[in-house]
Design a protein around this nucleic acid. Structure first.
Lengths: 359, 359
DNA sequence: ACACGAAGTGTTAGCCTTAACATATGGCCG
DNA sequence: CGGCCATATGTTAAGGCTAACACTTCGTGT
């Protein structure tokens, strides 16, 4: 790769020699601390420019005993939430002079997270942000196993007593369920997320509790894996189950896309026959057919906050856990439940329409 | 943070003392190279376990002159393509013993990439993967400015003569355009991506060239920014433009979601009145209403390949640029163009239907 | 019995930077 | 004009690890 086999990348010492000063002086100039005469500084800057010197962060990290890098351990980063978080965290970290090392945690539970953190500790990260569906117990275990590694848990309930910044899943779930209840729905089904995902548990419990407060419970339930295809399959399962429902709570918007499709295929009109509530408010949601009523989660804000808290932690300032409040975005996928007679008319109309519009 | 203020994290030397051997021997055990007697190895392993020793990668990187980390410089990682790539690259890198440092490149062009690579070079990354809409000229400039940093350009045409692994944008664009042409469309509009995005240029040119080969050209054109909302707005612009079209080529599936919505709102039936072709084949696309005909891009494959090539490069094996071929996925959003009379009937039907189904 | 090579281990000298301390220079005060 | 302080710079010793080399201790062939 090297055009000039003899040429090494220049070091601090090379700059020092060229500028006719000691290494320490160059270090002072580079880091902008300690007194340096204006003339000297200028000479050093010139030498840096001429040699195209770049400081070596490994060596600096070794000498300073802090690497100025942080780790982000997360579930599959190609999903909506992790990628949004990564984007926000990277931005905040870079601005504060930190680099971001991303490690993907495969699967749920303690073991894969432990593995990921071990790798991050090898890299001497100054701290870690963890978004990996940990239970409060797991989070405590992590802090015990890595006492020297400041960690922020991004999806652990605040009650856990570990540093955390998270979205209030329970509230979000309640917002969605209450919305359906207030519209008059009583037969409500749900599509939740993979077992083991903490967000899933919190949402499911939030739904159940909200319904229970009105003396109701979920009439049917199916599980997906966050993907649109799984939402589609889950909805088919629900429809095939024979339990009638007029409201459908879905654990994320991507699965809701599949749900809308499955309902559409069966000739079930949304929202006239069934109301659908999503979760996340992805960029697509406002433009679906129909536009999706959903619970907005501000992931960029969460990401920035999480980094800010970790950053404070690194400077030994303690921060209480933060809870960001999601908000309900009402769009056209929800409406009052249909009366029984109306339901028949709708079905007939749809059949007619389908016949007419077919080429 | 430290429970026991006196306790440092154990070093190689601590392990050596405990096992009663020299540091070098511990190093040999940890790295599994060089001859070590079975008994000695066992003693060292025990000491490592007892102390919970973790090697310090900064120090190792400094001593070995390679950090076993690579950089990924990309546009906003919350978008579809970058997040898919990041996921695949991280997996491949981790498996090969490399950590991944992610840097987000803000904006298009040479300057922000240079900035990002400088930061990565500070971190002593062994190589970098770049997905940042660079022109071939920019790519050459980068290799000139960073002669010691092996780079893979993930979105630079192979003709550029720089190491690259990319998806054949021109072919993908051709597939989509040919599909519409073969269905009989002659009035084709497009929604392309931000100026400066290389993918955009390649796709736009591919569309134009393909149409030109049949003596046609795009009848209208609007630009988006990859987001569903921008696709929606662009489609509204096209519809308001007054230039009739029966085929619509969209530069990604997310914008196609917005396009489908805008057409639906205007009562334009897809595919009876207008056929829509997307690009990417996101997880949602098969489940939209109607399911979207699109050009599938295998980003996970691209990510793995890109890393494999970089890895080869790091071992001084030269690899020719690779071109992955996208493939057309035909779904229900495309059909032959309507005859003029049919178009009126459709419109009337839609009006009727909308009136009937309104509660 | 001797040289020889291989296996196993230790020693030394870096890798590049910074913290801590040491030194030199100049200005100012009494 | 000596002494003292602030400013500006240099020196030394880590920081944790590994490459390169040096040194033992064997077993082997002759």
């Amino acid at each position: 790769m090297a055009d000039h086999p003899e040429r090494r990348v220049p070091t601090l010492m090379d700059v020092a020699d060229r500028a006719g000063v000691s290494a320490q002086t160059v270090s002072r100039v580079v880091n902008g601390q300690g007194p340096v005469a204006a003339r000297t500084r200028a000479r050093v800057m010139d030498a840096i420019g001429e040699l195209n010197y770049v400081p070596n962060r490994l060596a600096r990290g070794l000498a300073r005993q802090r690497s100025l890098s942080i780790g982000f351990a997360t579930n599959d980063i190609s999903l909506h939430a992790p990628s949004q978080l990564a984007s926000a965290i990277e931005g905040a970290a870079r601005q504060a002079g930190y680099s971001l090392i991303v490690t993907i945690v495969a699967g749920y539970g303690l073991a894969p997270v432990t593995h990921a953190l071990r790798a991050l500790r090898e890299r001497q990260v100054d701290g870690a942000l963890i978004n990996a569906s940990l239970s409060p117990g797991d989070a405590h275990e992590i802090t015990a196993r890595f006492p020297d590694l400041p960690c922020m848990f991004m999806d652990v309930p605040p009650s856990a007593g570990v540093p955390g910044a998270l979205l209030d899943q329970a509230l979000g779930a309640r917002l969605g369920a209450d919305h359906l209840l207030n519209l008059g729905h009583t037969r409500i089904a749900c599509i939740d997320a993979p077992q083991g995902a903490v967000a899933e548990q919190a949402r499911l419990r939030g739904w159940e509790d909200t319904l229970a407060a009105r003396g109701l419970s979920l009439v049917a339930r199916a599980a997906g894996d966050w993907s649109p295809a799984s939402g589609y399959a889950a909805t088919q399962t629900l429809l095939a189950g024979g339990v009638p429902f007029t409201g459908l709570l879905v654990a994320n918007d991507q699965m809701a896309v599949g749900a809308l499709r499955a309902l559409w295929e069966r000739g079930v009109n949304v929202p006239a026959d069934v109301s659908v509530v999503g979760y996340d408010d992805t960029a697509e949601s406002a433009l679906l057919i129909p536009p999706l009523t959903t619970v907005r989660q501000d992931f960029p804000l969460l990401g920035r906050r999480a980094f800010a808290h970790l950053h404070a932690l690194l400077r030994s300032e303690t921060h209480p856990p933060t809870l960001s409040t999601p908000e309900l975005v009402v769009r056209a996928s929800t409406a009052p439940p249909p009366g029984p007679e109306r339901q028949d008319v709708q079905a007939a109309l749809r059949t007619l329409m389908a016949a007419l519009t077919r080429p």
